[in-house]
């Protein structure tokens, strides 16, 4: 089975140790986390995580199920192949001299990125987009000399009115399930 990149989106309770619990599962199953992004969700006590992993569909499905068993994980979905919006943010510090500065600014404009800091020998660029866009910008800037890069990792959301993993829907699903089985 071919290993491909999978995007998992998880809704988790914002409790100490939850990241550790999830990371521990990936470690135990021998998975490498490509990126992981965590932030608050629309509900205060819940966080949303986007995890990108490499693996065959069957293996990722096994990990998804194991993650779902973690008590603090409300829900986790593999949204690979769904119609999604994927975004990543990167900060790139690039060497800039008086002779290269204009050229860099042109590239930044083309990518609809922005310059967030200017120093005598460098420019710091903020760029948002999918990974391909960030990689292309990175490749173009490489010839000027990259001093530092920081990337957030992917965050993702399914397109359309009903999110695949909105808090409201996930919670009501959990409630229904409990009622049905009570």
């Amino acid at each position: 089975m071919a290993a491909t990149k999978h995007t998992l989106v998880a809704l988790v309770e914002n409790k100490p140790g939850v990241l550790n619990r999830m990371a521990s599962l990936f470690r135990r199953r021998g998975f490498n986390i490509e990126s992981i992004a965590v932030g608050h969700s629309e509900v205060p006590h819940l966080s949303r995580m986007t995890i990108v992993v490499d693996g065959s569909t069957a293996m990722v499905e096994q990990v998804r199920k194991q993650l779902d068993k973690v008590i603090d994980v409300v829900r986790v979905s593999d949204i690979t192949g769904d119609d999604t919006v994927d975004r990543e943010l990167a900060l790139i510090k690039v060497k800039a001299t008086s002779s290269t500065r204009n050229e860099i600014i042109e590239i930044v404009d083309i990518f609809r990125a922005s310059i967030v800091d200017v120093a005598s020998g460098s420019l710091t660029i903020e760029v948002t987009g999918d990974e391909d866009k960030i990689n292309s910008l990175f490749n173009l800037l490489r010839s000027f000399g990259i001093k530092e890069i920081a990337r957030t990792g992917r965050i993702a959301m399914t397109r359309g009115a009903s999110g695949s993993l909105s808090v409201e829907e996930s919670l009501s699903k959990a409630r229904n399930k409990r009622q049905k089985t009570a």
């Binding site: 988790v12 309770e13 973690v70 008590i71 603090d72 994980v73 409300v74 829900r75 996930s170 919670l171 959990a174 399930k177 409990r178 049905k180 089985t181």
Partner: peptide
């Protein structure tokens, strides 16, 4: 109240 824990029964 454990929204992340829902053992399936049926």
């Amino acid at each position: 109240n454990l929204p992340g824990y829902k053992p399936p029964l049926q």
